[in-house]
């Protein structure tokens, strides 16, 4: 369970998130939608403290994962990011082989011996629906894969260290429709094992893949509800104006 409590976030003097509270149930897919600059990606990055890497920022409020405040001083950030994996908009494989990309997290965390790593790489590639396409060329460079395959490789890399939460920041926006549908299918299948939070600009994608949707605007969480309800009968007029394309 993820629970954000009264989160405020500032880039310098600019307040990017305004008093946001939200609960995310385990093993669900939650989508964040909203216009550019609304704070949805900033809020996503709260969950694995990726915003800590950005200079001149400040956060207030609490973010609890399984009851523990991840902003507590006692938290080991590397362990947090192992438990809360992330996939970015642009596929970012390392300049290594397909195998080594997936094994990377296991190696740097000293997780298991050679046969364990081999087994985990296979499992992760299977879970990321990529195994059949790469099993005969595991030692080839990850750069030889197509964009869609590279993105699934990045998902496999995130899965390898067995996180409980996966954050996806527009994971399909740089992909063609076929690769996009593969990623969406993958999200659907991964839901049984992981809690997934996805930022997307594609509202139909949010409608297709998520159980719950949060609509952000100007740093505020305008509406957060069941996706079916959001797309058939949103509570707020602002949400309706945005999702029906009447915004602005």
């Amino acid at each position: 369970m993820i629970e954000a409590k009264n989160i405020d976030f500032y880039y310098g003097n600019f307040q990017a998130l305004k008093n946001i509270s939200m609960k995310i149930e385990p093993k669900t897919v939650t989508a964040f939608i909203g216009p550019s600059g609304c704070g949805k990606s900033t809020f996503l990055r709260i969950f694995n403290r990726m915003n800590d890497l950005i200079k001149d920022t400040q956060m207030e409020g609490e973010c609890l994962i399984n009851g523990q405040n991840i902003y507590d001083k006692s938290i080991n950030i590397d362990n947090l990011r192992k438990d809360v994996g992330m996939v970015f908009q642009k596929p970012n494989p390392f300049p290594k082989s397909i195998f080594e990309n997936v094994a990377y997290g296991l190696r740097v965390n000293n997780m298991g011996d050679k046969s364990f790593i081999g087994q985990r790489v296979e499992e992760s590639l299977k879970d990321a629906a990529l195994w059949d396409e790469v099993k005969d060329k595991l030692n080839k460079s990850a750069y030889e894969l197509s964009g869609g395959q590279q993105q699934r490789l990045c998902i496999a890399r995130a899965l390898a260290v067995k996180p409980s939460i996966i954050l996806m920041d527009e994971p399909a926006s740089a992909l063609d429709p076929i690769s996009t549908s593969k990623i969406e299918e993958l999200i659907h299948n991964l839901k049984n094992q992981y809690t997934i939070v996805i930022v997307t600009h594609n509202m139909q994608q949010a409608a297709r893949v998520s159980d719950n949707t949060g609509f952000f605007m100007l740093g505020e969480l305008i509406e957060y509800s069941n996706t079916k309800k959001m797309f058939l009968n949103p509570e707020k007029e602002t949400t309706q104006n945005y999702i029906t394309g009447r915004f602005g």
Partner: peptide
């Protein structure tokens, strides 16, 4: 147009 919300209704 993939209508949603009030448009879909």
């Amino acid at each position: 147009y993939n209508p949603v919300a009030i448009d879909l209704r």
